[in-house]
């Protein structure tokens, strides 16, 4: 029998409890990132001079990172697909590819930030740069958290165990991608 009396596979609401927890987490993330982005937008509208500061952000770095995250979302959803087909090994490999995308994203970000900080655009420079580092920094922490989770999930997936977790960590990763989809135009395109 496939029945396992543990919380992760229990379903009291018609939806897997673990998945419900992930969606609840994301609901709270909507408020966190939504709050930061909403604050940024209202300040940006109230401070026309921020357009000058925003002109210093490097669109190329932002664009490369957007491509990386979109592509990592593809590997995450393909990992979910492999898990649904009960191919744990393939799912694990695709999750690790996604982790690679996250690592590439962080590498680009570190190069970008190093250049900006060296030029004096630090988190305390002015309101724009405060928002820039705060929003992208919180997002970066979520990228790191997602990478750790995916490595952990890939270890059990490789043994064809707990394959449902591949979808759960994937949903989280797509959300991280989703936040960047909005951060990119806000910080790099609207100048």
């Amino acid at each position: 029998m496939a029945f396992k009396p543990i919380a992760t596979t229990r379903s009291a609401t018609g939806i897997l409890t673990a998945k419900l927890a992930v969606w609840w987490l994301l609901a709270s993330e909507v408020v966190i990132f939504g709050g930061v982005l909403a604050s940024y937008i209202m300040h940006r509208i109230g401070h026309p001079e921020w357009a000058n500061y925003a002109s210093h952000t490097n669109t190329m770095f932002g664009a490369i990172n957007t491509m990386i995250l979109l592509t990592s979302s593809l590997s995450a959803v393909l990992a979910h697909r492999a898990a649904e087909l009960k191919d744990g090994k393939q799912a694990a490999n695709l999750l690790l590819a996604t982790v690679g995308g996250g690592a590439a994203f962080l590498c680009v970000k570190s190069i970008e930030w190093t250049g900006e900080i060296n030029h004096g655009f630090t988190i305390t420079a002015n309101g724009f740069w405060s928002f820039y580092y705060t929003a992208a920094g919180i997002h970066g922490l979520h990228v790191i958290a997602g990478m750790i989770l995916m490595i952990w999930v890939s270890m059990s997936a490789r043994k064809n165990e707990e394959l449902h977790r591949v979808e759960l960590v994937g949903i989280y990763w797509h959300f991280v991608d989703l936040v960047w989809i909005f951060l990119f135009p806000l910080l790099y395109i609207a100048k």
């Binding site: 500061y53 210093h56 490097n58 250049g115 030029h119 004096g120 655009f121 630090t122 305390t124 420079a125």
Partner: peptide, 12 residues
């Protein structure tokens, strides 16, 4: 030039 210069803190 682009990204050149000092922090805009004092300018702002």
């Amino acid at each position: 030039g682009h990204e050149g210069g000092e922090a805009p803190a004092h300018e702002a």
